[in-house]
Amino acid sequence: MTAGDPETGPGFPGDRRASGGLGAMSGPPVSRVAFMVTCLGDLFYPEVGVRIVRLLRGLGVTVEFPAGQTCCGMPLFNSGYHADATDVARRTIALFKDAEAVVVPSGSCAFMVKHEYPSLFTDPAERRDADALAAKTWELSQFLVRGLGRTRFRSEIRGRIAYHDSCHLLRGLHESESPRAILRSLEGAEFVELPASDECCGFGGSFSVRLPEVSTAILDRKLKNLEASGADCLVACDAGCLMQMRGGLGRRGSRLRALHLAEVLAPNE
């Protein structure tokens, strides 16, 4: 794969689905990536980041970690604080300027970088840098499948696994196939479809605390669907959704789990 050009698609407007196939990008393989851990990944789910680093190393990829990372700025952007979001974006762009490719464990942060960053800059040079970062940034499942051409992994857990389509990965980056391709061919676990897997989990960043009752009602619907699916574990590729779904499962004392994709993939020792 080249350092650039994961399929980006046009962003939110209209459901033009990703081309469907799982074509890897052409060009020489990238052997070096910079990892963007994201704020939630850093503070709350460091074990996910650790697993990703080991997983990628096991696949022969060198992982760098540019120091001084904070957050992609999406909370600021989505709440309409665009000047502040632009400052954060500018910093992030500088931090990853020299990276060959950037891997992000959350679809929403990847969407922010790939889709919203370029919209924040009017200065041509800054816009060019934003576009360059957008072009070389990958959400994890996309990187594994479309970037590295890998779908076969051993499972870290037993039982039935369902997949939740995170909104930004599905409708923002038009990706529904890569995570499923991995989960379907997992050795040692069984993949089941989650009813209404494309419906929001109710997180929505600050939405979850501005309208907590509505957010939780939406979550209830998601968890009911999880129960109906017969799965033991729900996988997602977004730390925000996981925070919401785990939070709900934990509070209900459920035996079901919500895990990041990286948590069910055994590293290649």
């Binding site: 962003g11 939110f12 407007p13 209209g14 459901d15 952007f77 989505n78 709440s79 309409g80 604080y81 665009h82 909104c167 930004h168 409708r171 923002g172 494309d198 419906e199 929001c200 109710g202 997180f203 929505g204 960043g205 600050s206 939405f207 979850s208 501005r210 309208l211 509505v214 957010s215 939406i218």
Partner: peptide, 29 residues
């Protein structure tokens, strides 16, 4: 303007592909 998780399902379903989430964010701004 904040009564949305910005999940994008509206833009997806809209027959004329109106990017509602983007305009909601603009309104918040």
């Amino acid at each position: 303007a904040h009564a949305s998780s910005l999940c994008g399902a509206c833009a997806d379903a809209c027959p004329v592909r109106i990017d509602i989430p983007r305009m909601l964010v603009t309104l918040r701004k």
